[in-house]
């Protein structure tokens, strides 16, 4: 026991010896990771279809919905990577807003989808959104960190939204399904308007 006390005393004495304290294990520019995380949240183009996608997945039941938690982030990651390899694909913004309308209508109709379709839709939307967010990177951006940030927020958002929608649906009362379907119709309406603006906006310039 005396040996333990001696060792403890020695440890504290050494720690107590004043010296400069400088430490941080990973002093990297993680700012771009958070930049990637925040970027999709700066407009409605990303969160709105993600929410609708999560509701659509929840409508399929937890056993199918859970595959979205893998498919969607993988799509985001690959999409972000594609934006580096082949930047400037012109139809992606149009595809993004078309997908908003499409998912919204699917939620409004409470479409039941087979598992491959759920996974495929998650991947496609992930690809489109990953690509679109990846386009925001500049030369000075750390690409890996930024794309990782986009993927992380996409994963966290889709997981939370799917879980919340699932929990909401598992409550008692048939009005819950109606409420979610109604929200889908709103998303569809926003998507259709945004789709139309894609054609109107260039003519105004």
């Amino acid at each position: 026991m005396r040996a333990i006390v001696r060792r403890l005393a020695a440890t504290f004495a050494l720690v107590g010896a004043p010296a400069n304290a400088h430490a941080h294990l990973v002093n990297t520019r993680l700012g771009d990771f958070y930049g990637g995380m925040l970027h999709p949240l700066t407009g409605f183009q990303d969160p709105l279809p993600w929410l609708a996608l999560a509701i659509l997945a929840a409508l399929q039941g937890p056993r199918r919905a859970r595959w979205l938690l893998v498919a969607f982030p993988v799509g985001l990651l690959v999409g972000g990577g594609l934006s580096l390899i082949a930047p400037g694909v012109s139809f992606i913004p149009l595809l993004d807003v078309a997908l908003i309308a499409l998912i919204g209508m699917a939620v409004a109709a409470a479409v039941v989808m087979p598992l491959p379709a759920v996974i495929g839709l998650g991947v496609v939307i992930g690809l489109a959104h990953g690509y679109q967010n990846g386009q925001a990177m500049t030369e000075s951006t750390d690409h890996l960190l930024f794309i990782s940030g986009v993927t992380a927020i996409g994963y966290a958002s889709i997981t939370m939204a799917t879980a919340c929608a699932t929990a909401f649906l598992q409550g008692s009362g048939s009005w819950r399904l109606l409420a979610l379907r109604a929200s889908g119709s709103w998303v569809a309406a926003v998507g259709i308007m945004a789709f139309g603006l894609q054609f109107v906006a260039p003519a105004t310039h």
Partner: peptide
């Protein structure tokens, strides 16, 4: 963690 349990993932 809660969300993963909720969707059985």
């Amino acid at each position: 963690i809660w969300a993963h349990h909720r969707v059985e993932a």
